[in-house]
Design a protein around this nucleic acid. Structure first.
Lengths: 259, 259
DNA sequence: TGTACATCAGTGAACGCGCGTTCACTGATGTAC
DNA sequence: TGTACATCAGTGAACGCGCGTTCACTGATGTAC
């Protein structure tokens, strides 16, 4: 009976295949960290694993497929880092979150710092997903859901804040005119509608706040890229203090006030 | 006597050398635009120019030197685009600029849009200088002055605005505490001092405004990279409206108010 | 439980490609007398 | 102005390298009776 466990004992072949698939990807990630996306070579991976280079093709039909797997993993790892930080920032031991505790702000800042920590620890994986595109490679559909994890996590924080009333941004028309009418207002409204229909629970994001969130997101990304790609050398390096300062301002910018 | 002109008639050899050096660089830039930095090959350049691949080495001692030349050119081209836009935004037909005309803001916005236009028109050159670093290449000293042109142009706008009184940010201590004390305040003060000693004329940049300028600069860069590297696909693409909106907010953020 | 056949992981040789860089050389351009 | 020598651009062959991918094959693992 011990044989019929969960699937832990699928055939030996299947277990070996799963394990090798993982090992190949891990070795590939190691080479990515060493030499960037262009330094990743199937032959070198095979060599390191002590197998013939042609054997790799039993697991990944081409180099691009291996790259895609790494890209998806990178998006997911970054997304997970953000999500875990968000969860840890507000343990929510049961019951509704307190109304004025600044929980959303804490979550926001925690997510920003977790993303930076992940990026600093995984420079080349970060470059793989947010750096200049790899020439001759076009990302398949499978990457878009993982790529959306981080943005969605940020949006989630804001929607929760609207739901708990931590931010009152949704109600009055006060800041709405900042968008005016025009293409941007249309794009933002369309995106807000798409978000609302995907996860219909809770309050909808007002379009203008969505735009602010995207601004914050590009800002975060710009800072990380500057730091990782060496544009801060000689000015704000190390960038810890600058990053903390800027993210705090960003949190306020997306209407998550200091408690 | 017509022979002794400016230098237009250095020896035939020297003229030929200068011309070929330029042609090699131009062909290299063409290949860069086609295939990115990794698609740039000395052999392909030579082929296109109808010469032996070894001949390139009479002009550039190695592939890295050619890359460096392209990088410096890219920084300079982008810097020039910004500077020209700034100059054009305020023709200054003589006499002191009017006190409350919003000239500095116009300059700021013009610079942002000029930079975006340049980046959109020269995607791969942009990626070369602001994308993920080329593996195995480390930028020599010669690149740092050209790289500073754009940031210095932005700082110049702000200093002019302080000088003309278009922004009164320098006088009161109002916003100063936003930095507090700590590493960031120190870094900003050091950078402000370095800037002041480089170009001693005019008012010094208050450190907190300098930090805001850097935030704006990272934001601008983040938006451009998102747009160019395809992260806006399906949301704010085309990004014209978003960009205009965000840069307008940034101008206000660095204390260049709407007129 | 034991045998016959099908599946599939892994091999090793090969194809065809392109690259950066070096080197001894030829022949044209420049310079000094 | 004319000759003798030095400089230097450009050649073509070669070195040594690594890559992605294909293909016919061997041998182990799984499956059906």
């Amino acid at each position: 009976m011990a044989d019929t466990l969960m699937g832990a004992s699928r055939t030996a072949r299947e277990r070996a295949r799963a394990e090798l698939t993982r090992e190949i990807k891990e070795e590939a990630r190691r080479q990515l960290a060493a030499g960037g996306a262009d330094g990743l070579s199937l032959r070198a991976v095979a060599r390191q694993l002590g197998m013939a280079s042609s054997a790799i093709y039993r697991y990944y039909p081409s180099r691009d497929d291996l790259l895609t797997a790494l890209i998806i993993d990178a998006y997911n790892a970054m997304g997970q880092a953000a999500e875990q930080a968000i969860a840890a920032a507000a343990p929510a031991p049961g019951g509704a979150p307190g109304p004025g505790g600044g929980i959303a702000r804490a979550r926001w800042l925690a997510a920003c710092h977790a993303i930076r920590a992940w990026a600093l620890a995984n420079t080349h994986e970060y470059a793989l997903i947010y750096g200049s595109p790899v020439v001759g490679y076009s990302a398949p559909q499978d990457t878009i859901a993982p790529a959306a994890r981080v943005p969605l996590a940020f949006v989630g924080i804001l929607r929760d804040a609207l739901a708990t009333g931590e931010t009152s941004a949704g109600e009055d028309g006060e800041a709405a005119p900042e968008l005016g009418t025009g293409p941007l207002a249309d794009q933002a409204a369309a995106l807000a509608a798409a978000l609302a229909s995907e996860t219909p629970v809770g309050p909808a994001m007002p379009p203008w706040l969505l735009v602010r969130a995207v601004i914050a997101w590009t800002q975060l990304y710009g800072m990380l890229s500057f730091e990782l790609f060496g544009q801060f050398v000689g000015s704000f390096e190390p960038a810890d203090a600058f990053f903390s300062h800027a993210t705090a301002q960003l949190a306020t910018f997306v209407r998550l006030p200091v408690p």
